[in-house]
Design a binder for these strands. Structure first.
Lengths: 135, 135
DNA sequence: CAAACGTTGACACGAGCGTGGTAAGGTTGG
DNA sequence: CCAACCTTACCACGCTCGTGTCAACGTTTG
């Protein structure tokens, strides 16, 4: 075989994926191998490493490929990233968890706008209503 | 009706979701309303805002609820976050896009270890093989 | 008390994911 | 040249997602 790259079957054996899955992973955009002039997939050291790591990642955290695809999208699309962060800022469930805050840099302005919209906290409402009309 | 919180049907009307979906969204952990003493869901201003924003977010970027759930998980689980980032660092497809790099702070060490494993770049391999054994 | 609304739980269903297989055809290498 | 490999394109299957509906049962309110 070749100098430095493995064919799909060889790569399958050394990474633990099936050839079928390697094609699937490629189509999902996660690991896209180079191609020979005749169209054969060529997996280099980098790709093999990524395939193994991907395997670990999915198993260890019980993720789907789509999750990693989404994470990739998050990394590449700044607009999406800030939209998602913006949504997180309004988090009412756990008001003290600022871990999301330093997840990335975000503008103060938009968060305050959202917080301003939230006049009453859910806890307050619950107590209020427990002794009130509904509860 | 109550002072400040809406019931599930009312919330459904003002947010555009169906009552069924509001329960589904709750089960997925994205928007969890308070409960009255008798178990009725109580959506406050904050929740309603989040529901509307969520709607926009999903439609604008064509996301699934699971994507947002995953993003939430990314924000809360630092271990997962760094594992995913670590995986991104080995990105062979587009070596020039450092956008992922400043996505969050990351340690130099692990990345270099991965880069060291990648001796040849896919492009090099392809060219090499095109005029070589396989291509 | 009865109507209107809330709750959970189940059945259903189309679409997409993660897999496998198989068929039809090109490439490589002994 | 022929076996062994590669390619794409399909069919299939079980599972989850997003969504609706319906049943059985509790709550609120006129």
């Amino acid at each position: 075989m070749a100098t430095d790259a493995l064919t799909i079957h060889e790569s399958a054996e050394t990474t633990g994926w099936s050839p079928r899955m390697l094609r699937y992973i490629e189509r999902s955009g996660l690991v896209v191998p180079a191609r020979s002039a005749s169209g054969y997939r060529l997996y280099g050291a980098a790709e093999l490493q990524r395939l193994r790591t991907l395997r670990e990642l999915l198993q260890r955290f019980d993720l789907g490929l789509s999750d990693v695809v989404f994470a990739l999208r998050l990394g590449n699309d700044a607009e999406l990233r800030s939209a998602v962060e913006e949504w997180f800022e309004a988090e009412p469930a756990k008001p003290e968890h600022v871990a999301v805050g330093d997840w990335l840099s975000w503008e103060q302005g938009k968060a305050e706008k959202l917080l301003a919209a939230a006049t009453a906290t859910p806890t307050t409402i619950a107590t209020e209503l427990t002794g009130g009309t509904i509860g």
